[in-house]
């Protein structure tokens, strides 16, 4: 059982359409679990474009470190701390080669081998496979007979690429069913499909297109066998208008010239109804308010809304 219902699984895949606040949500979950005394590891996929990391910016950094490093400064109870790291294809390749090749000299030769390195960089899906293996090794790390990370939160890429990644183990298993790689792919797939171990958090906004797309994403995830543990609707407007208030305002606005505030009003009026469309869609609904905060100050301010549980 998790300290923060409904976010129970140890591995949380935070995903959603671009621009909905995946990184903010991932960072807020990190703060929430660390405040509850857990050792949290926040991950994102590294590679080209490492300079533009929204997750790193949420912790006042330009980029996440290549090896797990503490990225928060708050004093926390127990093991409470937030570590951050990049998932890197190269690290995955290296760890994989170390694991499969008999003896150090062959590993060294393979790592030095230019042709092999070029293949790993260029062949379709080898990059993704490396990232996947890096993640698998991180999830297995232990320290004093317990998992080194109580909670692993992954800031996934936007919709289409999340699905490409979650479908990868099954696809690769058809490709490479035998040998050590087959075993590891099976282990990874089992972990991804175990609902007590892994859960997806689909982040969305209270707007038409994002709501529709988040349902499609949830269906895609279900197809690839990953369980959905919650929908998070981010940036819920702070002001809520009653039916009566809407009636008088709608009539008054119809006779008014173009006004500041009209667009925001229409958005707030629709927000609740749109968010409610996700209710009863098989996963709890968590609403995060739109706060007048940005940068590293925003994620911790969202903790109360995450820990409050489903609304």
């Amino acid at each position: 059982m998790s300290a923060i219902a409904p976010f129970n699984p140890r591995i949380l895949l935070v995903t959603g359409k671009g621009g909905v606040g995946r990184s903010t949500t991932a960072a807020a979950l990190g703060h929430a679990f660390a405040s509850a005394g857990e050792a949290v590891l926040l991950l994102e996929i590294g590679g080209v474009g490492d300079d533009a990391s929204a997750l790193a910016r949420a912790f006042g950094r330009v980029r996440l470190p290549t090896k797990p490093e503490r990225i928060d400064t708050a004093a926390r109870p127990d093991r409470g701390a937030i570590f951050g790291a990049l998932l890197l294809a190269n690290t995955g390749h290296e760890r994989f080669l170390r694991r499969v090749l008999p003896g150090g000299p062959l590993v060294a030769a393979a790592l030095r081998n230019d042709a092999l390195q070029r293949l790993l960089n260029a062949a379709p899906s080898f990059q993704e496979m490396g990232i996947f293996y890096h993640l698998l090794t991180i999830l297995r790390e232990t320290e004093n007979q317990r998992f080194r990370w109580d909670r692993v939160i992954i800031d996934m890429p936007a919709t289409g690429h999340t699905l490409a990644l979650t479908e990868l183990p099954a696809q690769l298993l058809r490709l490479l069913p035998n040998g050590f790689i087959g075993e590891e792919l099976r282990a990874g797939r089992t972990l991804l499909e175990d609902r007590t171990q892994t859960g997806a958090v689909v982040v969305t906004l209270p707007e038409r297109l994002p709501i529709t797309e988040s349902r499609e994403l949830a269906q895609g995830l279900a197809k690839s066998g990953v369980g959905l543990c919650a929908y998070v609707v981010n940036k819920m407007p702070a002001t809520d208008f009653s039916k009566e208030e809407r009636k008088v305002l709608d009539a008054w606005l119809a006779d008014s010239p173009p006004l500041f505030g009209r667009g925001d009003y229409l958005r707030s009026a629709d927000a609740k109804g749109l968010a409610r469309e996700l209710d009863g869609d098989g996963a709890p609904l968590v609403l995060l308010p739109e706060l007048a905060l940005s940068g590293p100050a925003l994620p911790p301010a969202l903790i109360p809304y995450l820990t409050k549980g489903p609304s």
Binding site: F241, V248, L249, W252, P258, L259, F260
Partner: peptide, 27 residues
């Protein structure tokens, strides 16, 4: 677009005045 104001007559309608008070910060 301009900032909204409530005309004198409209301000006399309590329901509208109350709703407008919530609308104004959005503007």
């Amino acid at each position: 677009r301009t900032l909204p104001t409530l005309g004198e007559d409209d301000a006399q309608v309590p329901a509208l005045a109350q709703a407008f008070a919530k609308f104004l910060p959005l503007a």
